[in-house]
Amino acid sequence: MKEVVANMAGNVWKVVVNEGDQVDSGQDVVILESMKMEIPIAAEAAGSVKELKVNEGDFVNEGDVIAIIE
């Protein structure tokens, strides 16, 4: 089980996967938006998306868990 973690604070602009999806390592899971900058957050390991911890529009802090990959 791997956690996908936010590497900056910001709003969740887009969630680009669904729970149950298969993702590859390096594939974008969500796109964060903060201060006119968009940062895609990618899965660090391949697997299926077990749980999405955020919704579009949520605010996340650096270090918050965004998704769990199994």
């Binding site: 590497n7 900056m8 604070a9 910001g10 903060s34 201060m35 900058m37 940062i39 802090n61 650096e62």
Partner: peptide
């Protein structure tokens, strides 16, 4: 912002 990655740092 983060001084190394230049990612924004609200708070």
């Amino acid at each position: 912002e983060d001084p190394k990655t230049f990612f924004p740092s609200p708070g």
